[in-house]
Design a binder for these strands. Structure first.
Lengths: 234, 234
DNA sequence: ACAAAAGTGTTCCTAATACACCCATGA
DNA sequence: TCATGGGTGTATTAGGAACACTTTTGT
C-alpha cells in the first residue's frame, strides 16, 4: 500500500474530482433532466450534466448540493450518490474522476437559473425521451440514473420527492406512470401506496371540473412497515 | 460550471484518489475480511482495508483489480463498486477521496501474500464478527459492504463468487447461512437455488463418511429467468 | 342529464413458507 | 447396524394482479 508521501515522491499527479448531477423532475407529464449547454471546449455547444469540481474542504455531498442550488435554486431535495466514473479517457482535458448523484426535485419549486456567467450559455429541462447529444460520458450517467430511478421506484417511496406538499392519489399514480412509462391499475396502485403508511389524508380537496379529489400529504413520522414490492402491473 | 483551466487558475489543489477493497471470503465457516496492518502513520499499527492510490492512466476498476491481485494473488473474482467516501477529514494527511469496492473470493484459491515491503507488517483474514479497530473510516466501509453483500445475496446469485468450481448444495446453503447469519430450510433452499437455473449437475460425488453428495457447477450460459426473491426462512 | 374524474372489493393465481421422512454410505 | 449427512414433496398462506361499477361534481 502506498502512502501519500511515497505517492508524491514518485511524482504521480493528483487527479481532478468532480460531481455531476442528474436532476430529475416531472413537467407537463414528462420526466425531465436538467442540462447545461457548454460554452467552451471541450464539447463546446454540447449539452452536459450540471456539475463541477469538488472543493478541497467540502464533502462530496456538499459539493453536489452546492451545484444543485446553483443550477436550480433548490436546496431541500432527495439526493443520492449514484456511481463513480473514472475512465482515464472520459475527459479530454486530463484525468477527471466524477462522482455522479441523482436528485429529484418538485417542479413547482424550480426556478431555473439562467445565469449571466460567461461560460454558461443555456440551462434547460429536456424530456428523457428527447435528449440531445451529450458531452463526456454523460449519456451513460443519465442512463444509469434512469435505471436506478425506475428500480427504486418499485420498492421504495423515493418518488414522493417529486411531489409538492399536497397531492392527490391520482397525482402520484400519474407520476409513477410517467417515470415507469407504463399504465398502472388504479385500485392496485392505491392499495399499495396506502399500505405503505407514508401518507395521511388532509381535510382539503382539489376542486376541478369534476368530483373533487382528496388531498394527501406525507406523514412526518417514519412508516410503520416496509413493503416488499411496489409493482402495479395490469 | 467551472472548467479545468479556471479551476487551476484559482489554485484549488487537486485531490488524491484511492480505491479501498473489502475482500470477503469464507474460511472455517466464518465470513472473513482481508485487512492489512499499517506500518506507518497515520493509524500506525491499526488494521485497515487493502487499497491504494489510483494511477493516472488506469481506470478505477483496474486500480481495484491491481490492488486485489497484489494482496491476494487472485485475479478473477466478483468485484463491484460500492460507494465513494469523500469526507474532507477522513484522512489526516490531506484530502483523499476513496472509491470502495467489494470483492468475493473463493478461499481455496487464496494465497495470502505477506509481502516484504517495508511498510506492510502483516496481512490477515479477520472474522467479520471479530474485527479489530480499523484506521480511517474503514469500519464504515466494511459495514456498508456487509450490508450490500447480505442484501444482494437475497435477490441475486452473487454468493457463488465465494465457491470453488465444484460444490454440493449443502456447501452453498452453509455459505448462505454463514453470511446471512441465520438457519435456512434445506428443501426450500434447494428449490430456490435450482429454480434459478444457474447450476448444472456433474457426474461427480463428494465422498465423506456418509452418503456421497452430488457435485454441482455453474452453467456457462446465462440463466433462463430472474427470480423474485431468495429467502429461505424456516 | 351528462361528461369526467374520484373512489372502492373481490377473485384468482403465483410464490414463499412450514414441515418429516427415507436413502446411501463408512465405520 | 447404526450414526450421519444427502436427498425429496405437499399443504398452507400471503401478496400481486386482474377486473367494473358507483359517486360526486361542474357545466
Amino acid at each position: 500500500m502506498e502512502t501519500a508521501e511515497s505517492y508524491s515522491k514518485k511524482g504521480y499527479e493528483q487527479l481532478s474530482v468532480t460531481v455531476d448531477l442528474v436532476i430529475f423532475t416531472v413537467i407537463d407529464n414528462e420526466l425531465k433532466v436538467l442540462l447545461i449547454k457548454r460554452g467552451q471546449e471541450p464539447f463546446i455547444d454540447f449539452w452536459a450534466l450540471p456539475g463541477g469540481f469538488v472543493r478541497i474542504n467540502e464533502s462530496l455531498e456538499e459539493a453536489a448540493l452546492r451545484e444543485l442550488k446553483e443550477e436550480t435554486g433548490i436546496q431541500k431535495v432527495y439526493l443520492e450518490q449514484l456511481y463513480t466514473f473514472g475512465n482515464p479517457k472520459r475527459d479530454p482535458r486530463g484525468r477527471v474522476v466524477t462522482i455522479s448523484y441523482f436528485a429529484l426535485v418538485d417542479s413547482t419549486k424550480i426556478k431555473p437559473v439562467v445565469t449571466g456567467e460567461e461560460q454558461i450559455k443555456d440551462v434547460m429541462w429536456f424530456s428523457i425521451n428527447k435528449l440531445p447529444k451529450l458531452g463526456f460520458d454523460h449519456e451513460d450517467i443519465v442512463k444509469y440514473a434512469l435505471k436506478r430511478l425506475c428500480y427504486k421506484l418499485e420498492y421504495t417511496a423515493i418518488g414522493f420527492g417529486l411531489l409538492p406538499e399536497f397531492f392527490t392519489l391520482t397525482d402520484i399514480q400519474e407520476l409513477y406512470e410517467i417515470i415507469l412509462n407504463e399504465k398502472l391499475d388504479k385500485r392496485n396502485f392505491r392499495k399499495k401506496i396506502l399500505s405503505m403508511n407514508l401518507l395521511e389524508t388532509t381535510k382539503k380537496y382539489r376542486k376541478g371540473q369534476h368530483r373533487p379529489a382528496l388531498l394527501y400529504k406525507f406523514k412526518k413520522i417514519k412508516p410503520t412497515h416496509t413493503f416488499k414490492k411496489i409493482r402495479f402491473e395490469s
